[in-house]
Design a protein around this nucleic acid. Sequence first.
DNA 1: CTTGACATCCGAAACGTTTTGGATTATAAT
DNA 2: ATTATAATCCAAAACGTTTCGGATGTCAAG
Lengths: 340, 340
Amino acid sequence: MAVTLKDIAQRVGVSVTTVSRALGGYEDVAEATREKVLHAAEELGYYPSATARQLQKRRTDTIGFVIPTFGPRFSDPYFSELLAGIGNEAARHNFDLLVSTRSPDSPEEEEAYHRLVDGRRVDGVLVVRTRIEDSRLAYLTQRNFPFVAFGRSQANEDFPYLDVDGQKGLRDVVQHLIDLGHERIAYVSAPLNLTFATHRLAGYKQALEESGLAYDENLVVVGYLTEEDGYQAAHRLLSLPNPPTAIAVANDLMALGVMRAAHERGLNVGHDVAITGFDDIPLAAHAHPPLTTVCQPIYDIGQRVCRMLIQVIKGEPVAERHILLAPTLVIRESSGATHQ
Amino acid sequence: MAVTLKDIAQRVGVSVTTVSRALGGYEDVAEATREKVLHAAEELGYYPSATARQLQKRRTDTIGFVIPTFGPRFSDPYFSELLAGIGNEAARHNFDLLVSTRSPDSPEEEEAYHRLVDGRRVDGVLVVRTRIEDSRLAYLTQRNFPFVAFGRSQANEDFPYLDVDGQKGLRDVVQHLIDLGHERIAYVSAPLNLTFATHRLAGYKQALEESGLAYDENLVVVGYLTEEDGYQAAHRLLSLPNPPTAIAVANDLMALGVMRAAHERGLNVGHDVAITGFDDIPLAAHAHPPLTTVCQPIYDIGQRVCRMLIQVIKGEPVAERHILLAPTLVIRESSGATHQ
DNA sequence: CTTGACATCCGAAACGTTTTGGATTATAAT
DNA sequence: ATTATAATCCAAAACGTTTCGGATGTCAAG
């Protein structure tokens, strides 16, 4: 049995109220009693019950985070790093983190949100990888529950979010490929129900258009963000009668798969074919050859998004409700820049 | 304001007790009242307060998981997959998952455990990446708090754990290298305060000994499990006056770094130098060349370890308190087997 | 009638805190 | 001596559940 305020109260011979207030640092308790209370607490090894506190204060000091995963298992380094950013920032503010992993748009995902929100297990939630029609966003706004999204949505709903300008990111990287002389540039996209996927695709198109290159829909294929899907997409693209000389990819994990397919076909990446990614996961710099990509500071994003959420929860004014970060192009060897 | 039992009680004109029991499916409530209660609950959108329940039932139905990370940011795919395994299994049993990321053996890590355990935020915790002298294990046993470890400890303490036989794993993979004709085999180890690191090192030594090869301490270097550390270790090893022809590595992430260093030196991995890893993260199969490694089924391990913990929490008898899984050798191209 | 059995309900306590609104006592000012 | 002031303390209510131990009413059997 854990030690409670009552135990201390009995030991010291004072009321529970006084113990609570002594421990809480209130002014209306005599220095002598405070010390006795402190001693007793120390001696008995008192540690307040989080649950009791939560019930009384009607807040949990916990934030919820449901990670959308394709398939039960996943290992996108992207999420580990985002999680670290969120978790460490939460800890700094004395918040806990309740995590679930669910596949997107599934009944299980919906249930997870109900559990967190309706069950009042958390004070706010973080939504990532937003979708064009996003039931999570709809639910949370309708419930008027504190949340912050990493990513925008289709509609012009007004919720606080932070996003990376994927359109600019892809425009820049494709422009980079064009500068290197490429004219047949393929694109491995993410599923287009994901908001960021549409932005990145738009960036791809924009770059082509700005340089007067035609958009060829045969050069665009969709993958579910895994290495394996990138691998397969690349094989499809490279089997075309008139294969691309460059392949831009919507995320690094798929780009790694694309590189593997290229290698398998005896192509020299960065020479015979240019390949680029998006995210700049740690492995990107360490790929073979190192991957040209678009850097979004995932760890920082996790921190910032978490900080925003805590502000929302506390009802503090949020400096910026809508943040759009400009990603930066990171040129490495896979795009062949060094060979030019 | 959320809907409470009281609201339903008032609406139906019945006591809170009855509402609770009606909702709880007890037999001592008339069918007619039960229906009225159910209707009202539905209408008002009642959802029980997790906190209130937790306080009353004196359990949280939550398990704690503190992820040990080197440096604030981390992105070991290994942990994403472990987390998915744990999280999904927890969900199956209607348990929540409270997650923190802390650097091992730090005051912050210790504080995280206190918060979870002393604050009674969780009913049990999962300990991973056990250390030889592990203050977490000592603390939890002393507190008599439910926990399960993924990994053993030095002492013969009797706590429930699941571990992978790293000694066998490394013995097998080094034997594989020996079979391929290698005689100068280096080893990139994990920090030796980690239990699994000592087992794997023992396996390395065992294989050498069994084949009558001398153990050369210059061929063993330690890295902190990151790609970067593997990279640096490899450069050190390959700069030796008499460099190794094969490098066994304690985990896949470092092995990827080792491969990068080898490439950088113009070595053809799998031909000029053999490289092997441990874990079989998804990326291993997709490395260039594909990485020969030792497979431990991380996702399954997450599930099993979680299931064990829930049994411990519920006081159910745990079928096996000490599980030692035999990992399997996965031969791919990086060890050069295909070239023999 | 009385009794017992059963069906249905409920008050009150408990879980461990925090907070509200005084109560009590001592001290200082008039 | 009276009164205001300040310094300490505390009982009770509240947070939203569950559970324990009856209470009440009905009905059939004696």
